[in-house]
Design a binder for these strands. Structure first.
Lengths: 141, 141
DNA sequence: ATGCAAATAAGAACGATTATCATTCGCAGC
DNA sequence: GCTGCGAATGATAATCGTTCTTATTTGCAT
């Protein structure tokens, strides 16, 4: 792993905390992590980063376009690697796992509706909160 | 205005703060109000209610089905009178005004997508953040 | 009117996040 | 490879929205 280029092109110095956070997002099982998730996972790996630094780095990465921030219910911000695509989210009410999906029909309908009301869409968020219908929820929190 | 019945049927005593909050939602220009909006408007009207009471009452009203709570970006909860219908929201990025809409096609597509992924929808929120395309944004903050 | 459970107001407490600031680090220039 | 300086960090205080605690007040059935 040598993403220093990512950081460099974003105008950010390649520091240890930043490399660690980026690495975490690229190698973690869960794509969607909160600031505290990141902080705890780093501590768990023996890394010594401050919580304040985690928040700072996440915000910088968001501004640099490396991460995308989401506001699901529950108050806390959740981040994921920016794959460049747009997608919406289903949040499992049982385990908190976040599934992604994209539906072209929904996207175009949104544009139509907004245009009809005299708005130009800048951004949107579709969050579905649902129960997994499989017998046992397959995702562990 | 005599909504004591609303309160009564919800199992809530008809107290002054509760009546005032309910009245505010029924007579305010903006349908969507945060706890602080409610608190400030009441203070402005010379009413003397505590902020804690506002939060308590809003939560009770939500549980009683009188109000619906929304989580837009920005962290704070926003409430509106429960009209019984479901609708989604467009938030004007200029003035913060919230416009409501309902699109059957979007709703059905959501169900299909969720079912296809093995989820049973419990709740969902579609928030569109957009710019008003009219020359001057007609809504004042 | 009286009493008591329920509701209130004020402020403390809380969780998530941001700001402050002294110390440390990355890295360009020597 | 060393130096120096501005940027980045970590510890902690501060902030913001919200909830909890508790002593006091209120609605309302009697």
């Amino acid at each position: 792993m040598h993403q220093p280029e990512h950081l460099k092109s974003a105008g950010l110095k390649s520091t240890l905390p930043r490399l660690k956070v980026l690495d975490l997002f690229e190698n973690s099982k869960e794509r969607h992590l909160s600031a505290e998730d990141v902080y705890k996972q780093l501590l768990g790996s023996g890394e010594d980063v401050g919580l304040a630094t985690v928040y700072r780095v996440l915000t910088q990465f968001e501004q640099a376009g490396l991460l995308v921030r989401h506001h699901f219910e529950g108050g806390k911000s959740v981040f994921e690697l920016n794959k460049g695509d747009h997608h919406d989210h289903i949040v499992c009410l049982q385990c908190g796992h976040v599934e992604e999906f994209y539906d072209a029909a929904i996207e175009t309908r949104q544009e139509k509706v907004a245009a009809g009301l005299g708005f130009a869409i800048r951004d949107h968020a579709l969050h579905i909160y649902a129960d997994c219908t499989k017998k046992k929820c397959p995702h562990k929190r």
